[in-house]
Write a protein that binds this DNA or RNA. Structure first.
Length: 596
RNA sequence: GGUCCUGUAGCUCAAUUGGAUAGAGCAACUGCCUUCUAAGCAGUAGGUUUCAGGUUCGAUUCCUGACAGGAUCACCA
């Protein structure tokens, strides 16, 4: 049994035998002792003074003495104010470390038989990916990996928005202005090519509006009647009818975009198990509307439009089907929710989508639950905050968008510059050096975006490049590279640092004990990260672990240490820290180098 | 206007879910490379946790109300 549980169990026994009072272990909680006090675990006494009918000091002493007597691994305790600080014996921590070393599957929890789908990325095919998408993709990927490590069977899905009026806009502009331009002829990446025409559409559309307004039309009318807008709407109708010419152009442009996305995804290091396309799913959901009407969950208004009343849930009435029988956004999402379930029988479904859609997903989930879907309770919107620039929100029309491809390339270039300045590439081949720059640049970027609590919006300042020092990806990568050097040396001199070589180890120092405690915490953090869908929990932990390791590295010698098993122990400890960093960073999609 | 989210050091972020003297990084300043990688380590300085009330042994955390920023509230997606 886990030590913490055992302590809690015995605190519960103590209440029973000392004070004749039942407290369920579930209601008891320990917390790590703060650094400035002696001890490993702290039990807060205040809530139980009514039970003990003693002063905080007396209560603490009685409990502490009981625990020390009952549990061999409790080496001591102290009571300060209302806090009982419990110390565990040195040999216990050594034992914990040995157990971790023996654990084959450290950092991976057993399969729990639950299937979960994580939908993320979900790009539009009319423009390239930007910084906001990077946060989305890194989050979605990391959450998927974290869930896997927690024993879930994870399906990573991408629902591509490949149709609709915005796609037609790019197509209209292309027809007018492109002269048959292709990615090959222009050297433009396919997604950037489509994006170019989307911007050109908008420019011309604005110009046309102004023209109409000058001719005396009011603003709203001008928006509706600008020639290119009328063309785009006409094209959408033709597309829905399957007009060969329109469909052919649509297919061609989309294929360019997918080739571009493919390249970007590869650079980002993300992948998907299942692709959904809105061109396949946009008609879904109408059968659910019918079902909802039958069940009385939905109702019809005079003009034939269908609504759901969510006032019980504290929300408004919401349209689910237009008066003319056509779908709205949520109709399709209802259908897709069912489709996902039909495809995979998932018990949980996670949507990684920005917080601007909070309301939409609240409504969607409420509807699916009202309809009694078996996966209803497992629906979860992983809502993340926008990435803002110092000037505010990114606006594609104002050209303030930070492009994903550009930013990743800049990060790699910065890493190259930085590394060369430090003169750290001796003995690297050209390919090794480039691979390192890639790892460092992307590591810095991913860590930067993942260390922050997902639901908070965050600031990105293009003027100040992302750091490589302090609480950063490269700091953690550097720690791993340092340890790798130690392991290389240990192997070179033929040092034995297997578990068996540690037999008889009796004394370890404070910093070493802190590292063991941190290693012991890893699986707890892993669980928390999954429960909260928060890669930031892992990121923060890895920083703390690296920080503590670097202190150890500076404080204590390894190869000049001669006392007992200390040398082997320190190498084994280093190795385990490196392993934890490696598997933890892998969850974040960050590769750690052996040398840097 | 209604609803939701956010507000912590100059800046970017933490704070084990109500616990002890609110912690890191960046920027500034001071030390440490002739010993395993200085992208590091140690230290100094930096706070009325936006404000005002309340709940209680105890509040950055929960409640109420201001203030500030953001999102959202279409027969758009």
């Amino acid at each position: 049994m886990d030590i913490e549980n055992e302590l809690i169990q015995h605190i519960s026994y103590a209440f029973k035998s000392l004070f004749n009072h039942e407290v369920s272990p579930d209601d008891l909680a320990l917390q790590p002792t703060r650094k400035e006090f002696e001890g490993n675990y702290t039990f807060v006494l205040f809530p139980y003074l009514k039970v003990t009918r003693l002063s905080p000091e007396e209560s603490g002493k009685k409990l502490g003495a009981f625990l020390q007597q009952e549990l061999p691994f409790v080496s001591g305790f102290n009571v300060i104010k209302g806090f009982l600080n419990i110390s565990l014996s040195e040999s216990h921590w050594i034992q914990v470390f040995n157990d971790i070393l023996r654990q084959q599957d450290f950092g991976r929890l057993p399969a729990n038989g639950e299937k979960v789908m994580v939908e993320y990325s979900s790009p539009n095919t009319n423009k390239p990916l930007h910084l906001g998408h990077l946060r989305n993709n890194f989050l979605g990927y990391a959450v998927s990996e974290i869930l896997k490590a927690n024993g879930y069977d994870v399906i990573k899905a991408n629902l591509v928005n490949d149709r609709g009026i915005h796609i037609c806009k790019s197509m209209v502009a292309y027809q007018h202005l492109a002269n048959g331009e292709t990615p090959e002829s222009s050297g433009l990446k396919g997604d950037h090519l489509a994006g170019k025409y989307y911007v050109l559409f908008d420019r011309e559309y604005k110009r046309q509006q102004e023209e109409l307004v000058l001719a005396g039309m009011d603003n709203e009318e001008a928006k509706k009647n600008a020639p290119w807008m009328l063309e785009a709407q006409k094209m959408l109708i033709l597309w829905e009818k399957g007009d060969p010419e329109v469909v052919s152009l649509w297919k061609t442009m989309n294929s360019w975009v997918y080739a571009g996305f493919e390249q970007t995804y590869r650079k980002m290091g993300v992948d998907f198990d299942k692709m959904y396309y809105e061109s396949d799913t946009y008609l879904l959901g109408k059968d659910i509307v019918a079902e909802g009407l039958e069940k009385g969950v939905f109702f019809k208004k005079e003009n034939g439009s269908v609504w759901v009343d969510l006032s019980e849930e504290g929300q408004d009435e919401k349209l689910v089907l237009r008066g003319d029988g056509t779908s709205v956004y949520i109709t399709q999402d209802m259908g897709t929710a069912d489709l996902k379930y039909r495809d995979y029988q998932i018990s949980r479904s996670v949507y990684v989508v920005g917080n601007e859609q909070d309301y939409h997903f609240d409504v969607l989930f409420n509807i699916m639950r009202k309809l009694g879907r078996p996966y209803g309770a497992g629906l979860y919107h992983l809502s993340y905050g926008m990435v803002d620039l110092p000037s505010g929100r990114m606006k594609s029309r104002e050209g303030t968008v930070v492009d994903a491809d550009d930013l990743m390339q800049e990060m790699v270039d910065t890493a190259r510059l930085h590394t060369q300045e430090l003169g750290k590439i001796d003995g690297f081949s050209q390919e090794e050096a480039e691979a390192l720059y890639e790892d460092l640049g992307l590591g810095a970027l991913k860590y930067f975006l993942l260390k922050v609590d997902p639901k908070k919006r965050m600031l990105f300042n293009p003027e100040e490049s992302i750091e490589f020092q302090g609480n950063t990806g490269p700091f953690i990568q550097y720690t791993h590279a340092r340890i790798s050097a130690i392991l290389r040396k240990a192997d070179q001199i033929g040092l034995d640092y297997t578990v068996d070589s540690l037999e008889g180890l009796e004394y370890i120092g404070e910093t070493e004990k802190n590292l063991i405690i941190l290693l012991h915490d890893y699986e707890k953090k892993l669980t928390t990260a999954a429960q909260e869908y928060a890669p930031s929990v892992i990121a923060q932990y890895l920083f703390d672990l690296s920080k503590e390791y670097n202190r150890f590295y500076a404080e204590l010698p390894i190869f000049s240490e001669t006392k007992g098993q200390l040398q082997s122990f320190r190498v084994a400890l280093s190795k385990q820290v490196a392993k934890t960093i490696r598997i933890g960073m892998k969850l974040l999609g960050i590769h750690v180098p052996e040398k840097m």
